[in-house]
Amino acid sequence: MAVTLDVPPGVLRLAERAWDDAHDKLSAAGTRLDGIVPAGLSTVVSTAVTAFLDVWSAEIATLVRQASAHAGAFADLDADLEITDAVEAARLRSLLPYAHRDATIRVV
């Protein structure tokens, strides 16, 4: 059994590219935060800055992984857009632009 998601192929490629872009930009933001070495600051201030950055660098890393996973899911689609089950189809559909939120999921 396979599942088909009824959307134009171009939409899926665009979605993949958009998530890739999101991944790249968030990676860049994360790299910037990770690269901050507090300088010219007192010890107490540096400690607070480091604690702050630890939390939000980690959070951005999580978002980077999510974006990458979403992009990867679109990239993994077969050329004929076959998906293994309806749950996965619904998940991918939820990542598409809102105009395609009601795209038909058909079991074939």
Partner: peptide, 24 residues
């Protein structure tokens, strides 16, 4: 010990990260 230039650089880095985050 905490100098304006040090804080300025921190602010620049935070803003640069925010710009890409806000684009997304």
């Amino acid at each position: 010990i905490s100098r304006p230039v040090g804080v300025l650089q921190l602010g620049n880095d935070l803003r640069a990260a925010l710009v890409n985050g806000k684009d997304v």
